[in-house]
Deep mutational scan, measured.
Amino acid sequence: DHDVVPEDKFQETLHLKEKEGCPQAFHALLSWLLTQDSTAILDFWRVLFKDYNLERYGRLQPILDSFPKDVDLSQPRKGRKPPAVPKALVPPPRLPTKRKASEEARAAAPAALTPRGTASPGSQLKAKPPKKPESSAEQQRLPLGNGIQTMSASVQRAVAMSSGDVPGARGAVEGILIQQVFESGGSKKCIQVGGEFYTPSKFEDSGSGKNKARSSSGPKPLVRAKGAQGAAPGGGEARLGQQGSVPAPLALPSDPQLHQKNEDECAVCRDGGELICCDGCPRAFHLACLSPPLREIPSGTWRCSSCLQATVQEVQPRAEEPRPQEPPVETPLPPGLRSAGEEVRGPPGEPLAGMDTTLVYKHLPAPPSAAPLPGLDSSALHPLLCVGPEGQQNLAPGARCGVCGDGTDVLRCTHCAAAFHWRCHFPAGTSRPGTGLRCRSCSGDVTPAPVEGVLAPSPARLAPGPAKDDTASHEPALHRDDLESLLSEHTFDGILQWAIQSMARPAAPFPS
């Protein structure tokens, strides 16, 4: 592969990997390779389809078979030569091979799209000592099968071997295949498990690692696999990028399955594409389908809103127990993405979901129960707010008499603000006073009005108090039968009158 990737590009890729991570280095090298001529790309395919690569990765054979028959990708048995050289000459001794072996032994695996480039050397060096003999053996194999790289107009793939297949390693990572398949204008990513390549439709969760975000852009890794992070704060999961590491605690105790298979379609829109997988259930989501939507993949363990709600429900009964003089119970939860139609709101002032922060849900004790107040519409209280300059209440639009249902020339009671006709409430011909108009209920007259088809109010509507207090003497005590009587009149003013009279009014101040 030294004929494909020059030394300066190799060093530039290593520097970019240390600065921005393996995914960015892979993407940059792939983009550079696509700008080369067809001879360089053909050399790339020839390096990929060597015999030892085909033996190690069985899924490469179907890719090789898909090439046109007129494309010669065979390799000479006596060494490598550029395709432009007409004579089959043995190339001179390859010093770059020693360079590659020494550099890969030092860096474990470079971040390139060629056999030198995919593992994360920093994480491997940190986690190597417990498994040094086995990992050293794996390093000797890295130059042979560490990076199976493929690129063409139909298929483009980048393979990364790992030393996680050490025997006896619980939940060992089998390997990473960062794979971009450009077929019919689409893009897919796969993962390699035990020599087999699994596409998103049959993606397997190998051991402790999972394909957290099938994305090839942005600074985030394709698999949430930063070796420096180790395990999740809650004892979460091992990262795919942690090559040759000792077994780590796999999943939280509440995880239903340690080796679950995540779905390959969004649980909201039932469509495929780039998904984020939940650590607590097999569901996966688009970032845009979450509520609120996320802009980037959160670091650490992530769970959907259903799993978060289940966790909150487990903690909430203990938080609601009476604990005198104790601060509110704080339950730190990872930043969760909410699927459509589901929402768990945190306290005000918290950062938005999706940031690399930890939301704190506070379970406050329930407030003391209070008697429910009568629910009145805002339009129902409008007549009470229509007060004239002299303190006389004006008529609201649409006000109707509670007896006849007519809204023409209605009066407004100064005591309960109900609309009424003087002739309907006082049919006996009582003279109307000039000021202080009161309806039949507030004036103490319980004589029913002779209106055909309208039920008369119940005599129990009024329960006047002592006459010594004029204001308190007109406080009506309405009961269920009074409400039914008012409802039978089918008037809004009657219902409003009952609601206003049912509310307690402050006692009249004593004259000074």
Rank of each mutant, 00 (worst) to 15 (best):
G241C: 09
G241Y: 11
Q243P: 11
S245D: 08
V246M: 14
P247G: 12
A248D: 06
P249N: 00
L250C: 07
L250E: 10
A251R: 12
P253N: 04
S254M: 13
P256G: 12
H259N: 10
H259S: 05
Q260F: 11
K261R: 12
K261A: 04
K261H: 05
E263W: 14
D264Y: 07
C266H: 04
C266V: 04
V268R: 14
V268W: 15
C269A: 06
C269N: 05
R270S: 10
G273Y: 09
E274G: 12
E274Y: 03
L275G: 07
I276M: 08
C277H: 05
C278T: 10
D279C: 11
D279M: 03
C281P: 11
R283M: 10
R283Q: 11
R283F: 04
R283H: 14
A284Y: 04
F285R: 15
H286I: 03
L287R: 12
A288D: 07
A288H: 08
L290I: 10
L290Y: 04
L290P: 14
P292I: 11
P293E: 06
L294F: 13
E296N: 14
P298I: 15
G300R: 11
W302T: 13
W302E: 14
C304T: 14
C304F: 08
S306K: 07
C307Y: 10
L308W: 14
A310Q: 04
T311N: 10
T311D: 08
V312R: 12
V312H: 07
Q313S: 11
V315Q: 06
P322H: 11
R323S: 09
R323I: 10
P327W: 14
P328D: 12
V329E: 11
V329S: 11
V329M: 00
L333K: 14
P334V: 08
P334L: 07
L337E: 00
S339D: 11
S339P: 11
G341V: 11
E342F: 15
E342G: 10
V344C: 14
V344L: 12
P348T: 09
E350D: 09
P351H: 11
A353L: 14
A353P: 09
M355Q: 03
T358G: 09
V360Y: 05
Y361M: 12
Y361V: 09
K362I: 04
K362H: 05
H363V: 13
L364E: 05
P365D: 05
P365H: 13
A366T: 08
P367I: 07
S369P: 11
S369F: 05
A371K: 11
L373S: 08
P374G: 11
G375Y: 11
S379M: 14
S379T: 10
A380R: 09
A380W: 12
L381V: 11
H382A: 11
H382S: 07
P383A: 07
L384F: 14
L385C: 12
C386K: 12
C386H: 05
C386R: 08
G388T: 04
G388C: 15
Q392I: 11
Q392G: 10
Q393H: 12
Q393W: 15
Q393E: 11
Q393N: 13
N394R: 03
N394L: 15
G398Q: 08
A399Q: 07
A399F: 11
G402D: 01
G402E: 04
V403S: 03
C404Y: 03
C404D: 05
G407L: 10
T408M: 13
D409A: 07
L411N: 08
L411H: 12
R412P: 06
C413R: 02
H415F: 08
C416L: 02
C416F: 03
C416M: 00
A417V: 13
A418D: 05
A418F: 01
A418V: 04
A418Y: 05
F420A: 03
H421T: 01
H421E: 02
W422N: 14
H425P: 02
H425C: 10
H425Y: 08
R432N: 00
P433T: 12
T435G: 11
G436V: 12
L437Y: 05
R438H: 10
R438Q: 04
R440M: 09
R440Y: 15
S441C: 07
C442Y: 02
S443W: 11
D445C: 09
V446K: 08
T447W: 12
T447P: 11
A449I: 14
G453A: 06
L455C: 06
L455A: 13
L455Q: 07
A456M: 13
P457F: 10
S458T: 05
P459C: 07
R461Y: 08
R461H: 15
G465A: 11
K468C: 05
D469R: 04
D469T: 10
D469F: 14
T471N: 06
S473Q: 09
H474L: 10
A477I: 00
H479D: 09
L487C: 04
S488L: 09
T491F: 02
D493V: 01
D493N: 03
G494C: 06
L496D: 00
L496E: 00
L496F: 03
W498V: 01
Q501P: 02
M503K: 01
A504K: 03
R505K: 12
P506R: 02
